[in-house]
Design a protein around this nucleic acid. Sequence first.
DNA 1: CGCTGTCTTGAAGCGTTTCAACACAAGTGG
DNA 2: CCACTTGTGTTGAAACGCTTCAAGACAGCG
Lengths: 231, 231
Amino acid sequence: MEQHHHTQCHTHDHHKQCISLVPIFNHLEAEQMDEVMYTAHSSSYKRGEIIYKAGEESDSLYIVSKGKIKIYRLSESGKEQLMRILNPGDFTGELALFNEGIHESYAEAMADTQVCMIKRSDLQEFLLKYPSISLRILAEFSSRLEQSEKQTTRFATEKVETRIALFLSELLEEATMEVTLPMSKKDLASYLGTTPETISRKLAELEDAGIIKQNGQRKIKIIDLDGLLLI
Amino acid sequence: MEQHHHTQCHTHDHHKQCISLVPIFNHLEAEQMDEVMYTAHSSSYKRGEIIYKAGEESDSLYIVSKGKIKIYRLSESGKEQLMRILNPGDFTGELALFNEGIHESYAEAMADTQVCMIKRSDLQEFLLKYPSISLRILAEFSSRLEQSEKQTTRFATEKVETRIALFLSELLEEATMEVTLPMSKKDLASYLGTTPETISRKLAELEDAGIIKQNGQRKIKIIDLDGLLLI
DNA sequence: CGCTGTCTTGAAGCGTTTCAACACAAGTGG
DNA sequence: CCACTTGTGTTGAAACGCTTCAAGACAGCG
């Protein structure tokens, strides 16, 4: 693994961009946003760098302002599962902030990435001072929880083929009837709780059945949406 | 399915008990708790009654003051999965309150049950008035989310035998080295994303291997904890 | 007590993983 | 820019784990 050579920077232009980007802050008055902005720090990570690891002490909320971050977990038996991918405007580190203070997952930069960080104590202060922030975070948590429980139920009750079909249908661009995979098929396998081989095979089967058409490695044309959803 | 014959009641003794029971309110000053209490309503459900269904409009937070409630989901393909069981002091209905307002899960009374309900609009008011309540709910959401993501990862990466072993070890009473199952084996199967047959077989295997000993239908003595965790 | 639902056990079948070998793409350094 | 290296994607064959169906034992409730 690479070493942490991420740069700290304090140009407030970055922070401002960052804070005004996230739904949890962008409803605040300009001067309140400035206040938040001044307490934030920002740092950069290169592709492959680890931002935090499971077991580490957590002390900040991370807001992505540029790049991509993948969040994954290791199960009790050591297998890796991809949980989600963060794009600019998304945030992470929340879980540990309101609980034990220990990260349960890993965060790794998938490309050169810039984040702004807000310290736990600063955040708590803002939450009490501007209760509307809490409501936003509650909304975010609530939809994440809904998403996570839905995913749990899918793993518990659906076979791989169905999980793939549902995944594709949720990413479908209705205009073009195309899906652009947001990750490699290897990562997709990890996300869907299966193996790259199975992903490969199931997509080939769907193609043989005339339901989809694969173009290149990350483009999939949906030919028969109804057929896809019947699986 | 049985009909809704649950009784509404307005004796404030119930509410008080109820409100002071939940971690999200019990840190408030006595008079603030009274305030919450007066806005709460309470109602009762008989064993088997449905409290809410997926797809229904949500308008309240439900706090269990007596009895047991099971929360389950139906997957896209119609299979049922048990998500969790609520005991006195637990609450539900939250998800829909901060989001779409539509329930994604089913809530059913497992025994004669009493809940108090706080209306969405009243709750929002309290959250803005007493920001510390938000912090409690954030902590609760945060640990639920952690729990749910851990569960997702287990389903994605562990085999049934391991999921059972982990489940048992988390319920273990260290004093007696015993586990009392909080539900029927049928429900356990649904919770762990498998079938009653498999649960039955795996427990029998563990018993044959001298790792556990089953006493009656819901008591399991752990004989070799290390062996259990090695699975 | 009898009925209903839960639990157990066996045998067959299916879906997915695993291992191995190869094709292909991307990234690196000469 | 090409050759090299590394990682990702594909395909086949065998093995494994779990589900399904069926039938019988058992427990709990009215």
